[in-house]
Design a binder for these strands. Structure first.
Lengths: 333, 333
DNA sequence: TTGAAAGCGCTAACAG
DNA sequence: CTGTTAGCGCTTTCAA
């Protein structure tokens, strides 16, 4: 790799002049700057990011703590990560996927400091390990997606109103026996969604059809299947089911299907997330769409803003959702 | 962050002694080493990776060039990336997702050099941009997943035998009119799969049912749907279809379904990849499973081996596949 | 407008 | 066995 002082030699100036020229200091005369830049280009010079990082105390990389069920195979989280990636890349940042690596005594905070990342995005599915907690206590710019608890420096969808809208949609279609496939009770969004369902049921004076004792941690197909089964066995056939994730909704549909019921013929079901599977499954799934692009853009801008402004604490960012009507819900006649 | 010379001060030795003690040099007496290590632990010392990187010319991070249709949302690529991640992390490496960032004049090679990555994994879906090509010409340890052309430093599934097995499976089930949903003709695996199909058809003296002029670049649901439609319109209903990806297989199934045919009742279809969707779709998809774990492990071990051994050129790594029988194929009666 | 020099935190000869 | 010293490639006072 070409270094700054090869350029210095060739352009017959000192390395500090080269550095300044390359970094756009105004105190360098136009002609020497031009000469230096030409030579640098010719040589294909590229600054050694490591060296810059060492002195500037900034690395132009943001760490991503990604500790999630199914890892990168989790389509929800990888969709927001993808959106985040596009945005942050366009600003010239790289993403460092931080290894967990507990056995070597590393924790995220020290890892981040060691690697000198400028900010960190926490994607942990609502888990709040000690290692993650420490990040918050540090001087780093950190933002958490779907945090375990509502709090500062977090970004998440408006779960409460989304679920209310789901329920209302189902209700307006004429359904009264609306079942609910819940998510995790140990994280914020899971509890919010349940609360919304319960509030809705209460407001309309309907019978709640859900499993109060069962927390579904993975938002997975299997959990949806099993939950549907348990609901069916406990309450009989609902008219509609509101699910907290698409995968769970599909699990529920398959349970229903395997037991001779038709969706949306016999029961309507609505999902949450709007993963790509919604389009390829039969029937196509009506769902609440989380705005992945908005997540990515807001997370990016917020983090960069925090870096620039040296801000370390911001209010929660709440992202709007949208209902996507497809084929899995139908009017009750 | 604690630095090496705070430790030096506290333990009343020089910084080089501290460095050596911490790095396991044997020339340090047991007692001073212990003292130093105790103090370091107490202070929660963690080496500044940037500084180490600068002098050691190694960063313990591997770059990932990830330039793929649908980005991280592409379940095939993100599945292998996930497997790779687990392996590489367990060896104490981080993954740097390299930004593309062409407009700022960056190219991957210089980017990698600048960030001082130890190796790079190229995941580009068979595209062979100039930027990627340059990586090969460099001194970096690089490995490409599913390269555009068969060549050194690459890793991919045994497409040829896999598709032959698919076809044979269908054939043994009694199907003679076997259609083929092809992938891209511009990359290696796409051509291999076609070649396998054609060879099989030829060997058995069957009629080829496929689209010679249509290259499907994305291996997507939509392409599968459309291709199935075109095949149907050109040749009528096949008895079975062999698809080059799961998503395309599902697209084909849905086309068939929408046109009143049953899978596997009227036609059997087999996919390729074994994505998680195979399990949640109706009927569950019979497919060829690519061994994601093997990809991850081999890619990791190979790259690290190349780093250690200063090897820069290795033979292609071919990964075995496995047929997963589910519900989308049936014996012809 | 330019250059000398110190230093970021660490490693690795080389001396002692 | 321990310490001195010279860097790694770059930025940034400060002086010229």
């Amino acid at each position: 790799m070409v270094t700054i002082d090869e350029i210095a030699k060739l352009s017959k100036v000192s390395i500090s002049t080269v550095s300044k020229a390359l970094n756009g200091y105004t105190e360098i005369s136009e002609k020497t700057r031009k000469r230096i830049i030409d030579i640098a280009d010719e040589l294909g010079y590229m600054p050694n990011a490591t060296a810059q990082s060492l002195v500037r105390k900034r690395s132009n990389t943001v760490g991503v703590v990604y500790e999630v069920q199914y890892g990168l195979k989790n389509l929800f989280f990888s969709s927001v990560l993808e959106a985040f990636r596009k945005n942050i890349e366009s600003k010239g940042y790289d993403i460092l996927l931080l290894s967990h690596n507990t056995d070597s005594g590393l924790d995220y905070l020290r890892h981040c400091q060691s690697k000198n990342v400028d900010a960190v995005l926490v994607v942990s599915g609502g888990d709040n390990s000690d290692a993650i907690h420490k990040l918050y206590l540090s001087q780093l710019a950190v933002l958490t997606l779907d945090p375990a608890e509502k709090g500062p420096n977090s970004i998440f969808s408006d779960s409460y109103h989304s679920i209310k809208r789901s329920c209302k949609y189902l209700y307006d279609l004429g359904h009264k026996r609306i079942a609910f496939i819940n998510g995790s009770y140990t994280n914020f969004i899971g509890r919010e969604r349940l609360r919304a369902y319960l509030d809705f049921i209460h407001e309309k004076g309907l019978e709640p059809l859900y499993l109060a004792e069962r927390s579904n941690e993975k938002y997975s197909y299997e959990e949806g299947y099993t939950t549907m089964k348990m609901i069916f066995e406990a309450y009989g056939l609902p008219e509609a089911v509101c699910s907290v994730s698409d995968l769970m909704a599909i699990g529920a549909i398959n349970y229903l299907y395997n037991h001779g019921f038709s969706v949306p013929g016999d029961v309507s079901v609505i999902g949450f997330d709007d993963l790509q599977v919604c389009e390829i499954v039969t029937p196509k799934l009506t769902t609440i769409r989380q705005d992945y692009e908005a997540f990515g853009e807001l997370a990016c801008d917020t983090l960069l803003g925090m870096i620039e402004g040296k801000v370390r604490k911001i209010d929660p960012i709440i992202v709007d959702t949208e209902i996507i009507v497809r084929d899995s819900c139908r009017k009750r006649k």
